[in-house]
Design a protein around this nucleic acid. Structure first.
Lengths: 226, 226
DNA sequence: TCTCTTATGTAACATCATCACTGAAAACAT
DNA sequence: ATGTTTTCAGTGATGATGTTACATAAGAGA
């Protein structure tokens, strides 16, 4: 159950596709959806599983990744505010099992839509369809980019790019462990440590436990241009 | 323009989703679609481009791959009979540019649907929607599998698996060059040559110019189980 | 038979994967 | 405040793969 007020708030707050024109669909949404809170580290779905609900993220962040037997991981993409999990959509629309794993990275509030309601909305409402197609298309492009990265680019470049992106979103002192970077990029912690050490030796960064300081951002940019 | 007869043939011949119920949509299809032949090596689309037509494959095969500056390539997936290119669909539905390249691998006959007609069909007809979603979902799962393969698996295993798949579809003497295998898997020809030579030394295969003979298929299977 | 083109072999070195440790920093317990 | 445990980082060693650079061999065509 969703209150009329919450519904309106969501529509104004980055979930504009919720705004369907058909009155009976609005009622379906109000009656059959609800809001849940999922704390950090909650396993949203695992490889091989299926589901009966679609979660649309209102706040927080989810990481979708592949896990190898060796213990290595690689991040495939993240689900942010206003998005939902296309793998769940795959599962609902095509009866496929998840090919990856999703875990809450930052505490999540989500709107939960039962799969049959979602199916009906996608079939009857154009804005839901556009939302769904748009999400699938951008994700697809994302994953192809991941393929390109791991197939063709060197690890030092990839680490540098990762640092640079983080730098842009959270200032030049990053609080992150080498292991986290390794999980992000699909490599081993040792590899990350070694490469970061090289960066430190060349004066680009400064390292401490749980911390990476970017000392020379223009140098980083220059290296990425090549 | 499509003849009524051709249209019926296509419906019976693996393109059942063409069978729409609405009469005006049938007319749209008949009037606005056509059949084209595309010989081997035709570039269907390239990175960064967009399109106004969707091709649905009636016969033949298309390879979709990423190309690196170094000259390396990696196959992302193939488009077979009854399928169409989801990247084209992305481009049409979400105005995205292609993140990869597609080339005809075996002579293709395809049904060409203008993008506005396709949009209308997806919006109005459920079987087209299901076709579209189904294709996107399986492709997405494919690409995630590719990520897993290149991120975590060893090259000798991947080559072995490739040989095994080819073996299943075309007998135990394969006519293929090392370069082609390298393009498939995203590595260098030299790496493929080296690993194949090792396989030959261990008695699993026999190598000749343009030819790989699998001598011991049970051994290959066994290695793949591990 | 000679030449050109294409496919393969292989050495050498760089990078990354993988295993096996060591030591340092922070968190926790007493 | 000190000792203990846990978590994080440093680093050597070795194998697999990426990358450059040639050499050789097989087939195609003149």
């Amino acid at each position: 159950m969703l209150s009329e007020e919450t519904y309106q708030n969501l529509i104004e707050n980055d979930l504009s596709f919720l705004n369907v024109s058909d009155e009976s669909l609005v009622n379906k949404i109000l009656q059959h959806t609800s809001i849940v809170s999922l704390p950090k580290d909650t396993l949203i779905f695992d490889e091989g599983s299926t589901t009966n609900n679609l979660a649309i993220i209102i706040s927080g962040k989810v990481r979708v990744y592949k896990l190898a037997e060796s213990g290595r991981e690689i991040t495939i993409y993240r689900i942010n505010k206003g998005e939902s999990c296309i793998l769940t959509i795959s599962s609902i629309l095509s009866n496929l099992t998840y090919p990856a794993r999703a875990v809450v990275e930052e505490d999540v509030e989500a709107l939960v839509v039962p799969s049959d309601v979602f199916k009906e909305l996608v079939n009857k409402d154009e804005s839901w369809r556009n939302f769904t197609f748009g999400l699938m298309n951008t994700r697809f492009a994302n994953v192809i980019t991941v393929v390109e990265e791991i197939a063709f680019r060197r690890m030092d470049e990839r680490i540098l790019e990762f640092l640079f992106d983080k730098f842009n979103s959270s200032g030049n002192e990053l609080n992150i462990t080498h292991q986290e970077i390794a999980y992000e990029l699909g490599t081993y912690r040792e590899v990350v440590s070694r490469i970061l050490k090289d960066f430190e030796k060349s004066g680009m960064v400064e390292l401490a436990r749980n911390k990476i300081n970017i000392l020379n951002i223009t140098e980083v940019k220059k290296k990425l241009k090549n």
